[in-house]
């Protein structure tokens, strides 16, 4: 039902397919509110979750989505794998596919790894984050959550705050939001915003207060601890002073701005606890919508015909 066999990224992804995923995700949201949160849509489908990098919520979210759809799942993580024995990436995935599987959900530290995977295997590939490249399912769940909150995406003003250079969440959000007609301003330390990013149709503003004044919603990125104090970010207090989403800063602005965060949060660094736990934060909605979005993606890529009776 989707035009592309795989979900590798949102660059060039058809707008109508993003819309179809979000629409389907809202149907699955309803399933998640039932006492028995399970439908048989993917019965007999086998999915392997290949995680070559640590992940907590994305992996749990995918696994729950798969179980709610009655798929059979197998998990694989690099730490327990034969990769440690020197087996190549190609051999690992070909071995796994030889065991007859239908789809692979992969997280990998190398940009382009999911595309590379499609060169070796016939199974459907879903990118669960490839290094500093893309994280399309995160962007879809973010857009679903905006849709839920605002009833639309077109015309929304979204600020993405933080280290854009190293963020797959930022890149997928930019592709998705621009495609769906939102306006995007990036805000963060100047050397952590790539010089050519405005070619993607976004603007840059280093002044967080101006962005707050302008935006309907903020997507606040996690500050990677490994970048702190190694010359990229001078200190926590400097970052907090310039780009931290604090209660005091929000109070200066008359309107109530919606706050999103892909998690995991560094409370007290990029976002204050009081803000994260406030009503204007829709961070836990994002988590719930993450399961629904991933159900929709799996269903549309693997489920064949849309069967109302399963989900209504």
């Amino acid at each position: 039902m989707l035009q592309q066999k795989h979900l590798l990224g949102l660059e060039g992804y058809p707008q109508e397919d993003i819309q179809a995923i979000i629409d389907t995700a809202f149907n699955f949201r309803e399933v998640l509110d039932r006492p028995i949160k399970k439908v048989p849509s993917l019965q007999g489908i086998t999915i392997v979750n290949l995680f070559f990098e640590n992940s907590t919520r994305t992996r749990i979210s995918f696994e729950l989505a798969q179980k709610r759809l009655s798929a059979d799942t197998v998990n694989f993580s690099a730490s327990s794998s034969s990769l440690k024995k020197g087996e190549s990436f190609k051999d690992t995935v070909q071995n796994i596919e030889a065991m007859k599987i239908d789809a692979v959900v992969m997280r990998h530290p190398a940009p382009g790894a999911p595309r590379h995977l499609t060169e070796f295997i016939d199974a459907v590939v879903i990118n669960a984050g490839d290094g500093t490249h893309e994280h399309p399912t995160q962007a879809i769940l973010d857009m679903m959550t905006l849709y839920e909150k605002f009833g639309k995406i077109k015309g929304l003003k979204i600020g993405i705050i933080g280290d854009i250079s190293h963020s797959r969440v930022a890149l997928s959000n930019i592709y998705g939001l621009i495609s769906m007609g939102a306006e995007v301003i990036l805000c963060g330390p100047a050397h952590l915003i790539p010089p050519y990013i405005t070619d993607l149709g976004v603007k840059i503003n280093y002044n967080l207060d101006e962005v707050l004044e302008w935006a309907d919603a903020l997507n606040v990125l996690r500050v990677q601890n490994e970048r702190m104090g190694v010359g990229l970010i001078p200190s926590t207090r400097e970052y907090r002073a310039l780009f931290g989403i604090t209660e005091e800063r929000l109070e200066k602005h008359a309107k109530e701005i919606v706050i999103m965060h892909p998690g995991p949060m560094n409370r007290g660094v990029e976002i204050d606890s009081a803000v994260a736990d406030s009503d204007q934060a829709i961070i836990l909605d994002q988590v719930l919508n993450g399961v629904a979005s991933r159900m929709a993606i799996l269903y549309l890529l693997l489920g064949g015909k849309y069967e109302d009776k399963d989900i209504k």
Binding site: E11, P111, G112, D130, G131, T132, H133, E134, R168, L171, P194, P195, Y196, I197, D199, L200
Partner: peptide
């Protein structure tokens, strides 16, 4: 090459 293409691909430029 550091460029809009490296941005697209998420590769270090």
């Amino acid at each position: 090459n550091e460029s809009v293409v490296s941005n697209h691909l998420g590769l270090p430029g």
